[in-house]
Design a protein around this nucleic acid. Sequence first.
DNA 1: GTACTCACTTGGAAAGTCCAACCTATTGGC
DNA 2: GCCAATAGGTTGGACTTTCCAAGTGAGTAC
Lengths: 124, 124
Amino acid sequence: MPRRSYDQYCAVARALDAVGERWSLLIVRELLDGPRRYTDLHADLPGVSTDILATRLKQLEGEGLVERRRLERPANATVYALTDRGVELRPVIAALAVWGGPELGEPRPTDAVREHWYTVGAPE
Amino acid sequence: MPRRSYDQYCAVARALDAVGERWSLLIVRELLDGPRRYTDLHADLPGVSTDILATRLKQLEGEGLVERRRLERPANATVYALTDRGVELRPVIAALAVWGGPELGEPRPTDAVREHWYTVGAPE
DNA sequence: GTACTCACTTGGAAAGTCCAACCTATTGGC
DNA sequence: GCCAATAGGTTGGACTTTCCAAGTGAGTAC
């Protein structure tokens, strides 16, 4: 199933082909604060339905912006994290945040999952 | 008919409520180069259908990002131009262009329509 | 084995988008 | 005045995407 593309030779159009669909950039914004589990993303993004969340994560993974990693211990869990290429979207998110309102918070302090992620290390 | 909103207290979500729909940011990108007529926008954005273009221009106008102005002479024409608030989206477009590809061109030189626009002056 | 959480998938309705055709008003040529 | 062309849309219907609620299967927890 081919996704709908702007199909233009233009950097902006190509960027929007990758992250222009509904919820994509909000998922990236969540992940800029650190890795998150599927259920956490679902809780932190009020309004996103589970099927769309699963679809977007697969698309972002397919574009090399998000990595999926299964943590064995201490808790059996799947976490999603941005790749380097995904983190490079930070200026886009920041520009949107500046335009969209007065306040842009710094990345939040570490939480348990993130702690574990960096303890365990990045995926190979 | 209420448009679909992310309905979140988050600057990024609010920005995407305004310009997150399909084609919106590409229209803004075109207008960053200067005012354009409806038919020019349609020609410069391959793939956009006339009804969506009309809908988006109305939405952007309703959000105060685009102004519609009727030029009386020399040619009877309607042009669309960004408001100050719309121009403030330039950093967003720039960030997307940087992320999306190697080259981001500077705003193109003036053309006839733009010349006339600035000769005539901004809308009251 | 029963209950519970996590990470999804499925089915169907609603909303959004695409496409081609049509419409109205104005201009330009003759 | 008449005809055709252009600008700036609107309309109807097909198609695609998103939403929503419900269900599934795998892995602990007890």
